[in-house]
Design a protein around this nucleic acid. Structure first.
Length: 393
RNA sequence: GCGUCGGUACUCAAGUGGUCAACGAGGGGAGACUGUAAAUCUCCUGACUUCGGUCUUCGAAAGUUCGAAUCUUUCCCGGCGCACCA
């Protein structure tokens, strides 16, 4: 691929919207070393596949020699963003922010060359601001800018509380762009308002406004937008097996989108996948490829192969997975499992037994259903439901 | 500050004196089926239980009552309206 082709792919692959496509293309083609701003929300330390799409985009830009500027929203994180939630975000303590950041770079390092990334915390410039400066920034915006925002409007209409503190968030994120002289900002479409406010403030400060590259939001496990607060994420920190399994549980309709947005395989490969699905090929097989591809991006090809094998043997051939939890102890099986938090309560245990979910595996791949909830724990392998395995020793 | 409406389980949201461990939806668990931990269908989803029951829960506390998530009082929290306003 030539550089020009790479730039075209950067501008289109997985991209939802670009603020001033032509300007951005010209910037990228100019050969100038650009400053790419990317904000990190320290609310949750886990990078999930949805956020990773943006980081991969940064990687593409980094490969072209541009400077990636990470802005750790340690100050803004304390305030809380409102972009996509219908409820108010909690204010984080400074300690929590620090804790959350600790693991972030490690995960991002799986994608980016972190040595070359310029890192800032926005307390650097936000904390020293005086009231009169803040007033100056606030003058750039009007109240209707805020209350016409969909998520704020929804909350106001529902009679929910919107605090003034929250309205400050876009001002701060916008000022970040001024402070680091951003040429481009990258984020999800949910960040549109915040990123646009960067342009406004840059203009106010007589700087060239940043271009904005907005990425598609990808759906998570339950089909809703992937978000840490929904708990439907595939995380970079997940084990290879987990990651593989989670990808397999995605709804079939998302396969092609994931190839485009969540992997870096040539786009022709995504087209291929789409075509074979169209021909009526078993989506499972296409999804297996996808899962292996995604796992290999973070764990390497060998590990991805192993995850694939583990998945197939556990769920297709119904074999016992490797490395299942071993429990030592005696007494009633139910009590033992409750003590180990494998079942949440005795009632939960009894319910599972009643439903015929508890099985003891015996030689030759046979299973014996447990029907007596007062059964004593005897050594052996037990299966609870489809995916919980326990070995009593 | 005054007035008014509201605070129900993981989330949303019914219930407005007994039939309430509390409708429904989402989420979660299980079973069936399958093409997979997909989709679809069915069941379950406070805890303890000798399976007879027992105990704890509807913002908090106190009270009325044979009996309260439901009524009263006080307090805490939120919305809305009005007032006040540098």
């Amino acid at each position: 691929m030539t550089n020009d082709e790479k730039i075209e792919e950067i501008l289109t692959r997985g991209v939802a919207e670009v603020i001033h496509l032509d300007t951005l293309r010209a910037k990228l083609l100019s050969g100038k070393k650009l400053r790419i701003k990317f904000g990190i929300d320290p609310t949750s330390p886990n990078i999930h596949l949805g956020r990773a799409t943006a980081i991969w985009k940064l990687r593409d830009l980094q490969d072209l020699g541009h400077t990636i500027v990470f802005i750790i929203g340690d100050f803004t994180g304390i305030i809380g963003d409102t972009s996509d939630k219908e409820s108010e975000r909690p204010m984080l303590s400074r300690e929590t922010v620090e804790e959350n950041l600790a693991t972030y770079f490690e995960q991002a390092g799986k994608i980016l060359d972190m040595e070359k990334v310029e890192k800032h915390r926005n307390t650097e410039w936000l904390e020293p601001l005086t009231y009169s400066e803040i007033t100056e920034h606030a003058e750039v915006f009007s109240l209707s800018d805020f209350i016409s925002r969909e998520n704020i409007k929804v909350r106001l209409d529902k009679g929910l509380r919107v605090s003034l503190r929250e309205l400050l968030y876009p001002l701060m994120q916008g000022y970040d762009s001024v402070a680091v002289n951003a040429d481009i900002e990258i984020g999800g479409t949910d960040q549109k308002f915040n990123m646009l406010s960067g342009r406004k403030l840059q203009e106010h400060f007589k700087k060239e406004p940043q271009s904005i590259l907005m990425l598609d939001i990808i759906e998570g496990l339950d089909g809703r937008k992937m978000s840490s607060s929904w708990g439907n994420t595939i995380n970079l920190a997940d084990t290879a097996n987990d990651m593989f399994g989670k990808v397999m549980s995605l709804r079939d309709e998302l396969i092609v989108k994931y190839f485009i947005n969540a992997t870096r395989v040539p786009l022709s490969k995504a087209d291929e996948a789409e075509a074979s699905l169209g021909r009526g090929e078993n989506p499972r097989d296409v999804k297996l490829q996808l899962a292996e591809e995604i796992v290999s991006m973070y764990y390497g090809k060998d590990e991805a192969k192993r995850a694939r094998e583990a998945f197939l043997s556990t769920f297709q051939k119904k074999e016992i997975p490797e490395g299942i939890e071993e429990i030592k102890g005696e007494g009633k099986l139910g009590e033992l499992l409750k003590a180990k938090e494998i079942v949440s309560s005795m009632t939960d245990w009894r319910r599972l037994v009643e439903e015929g979910a508890v099985k003891r595996l015996i030689e030759g791949g046979e299973e014996e259903k447990i029907t007596d909830d007062t059964i004593l724990a005897t050594p052996g392998v037990y299966k609870i439901g489809k995916r919980r395995f326990v070995k009593i020793i």
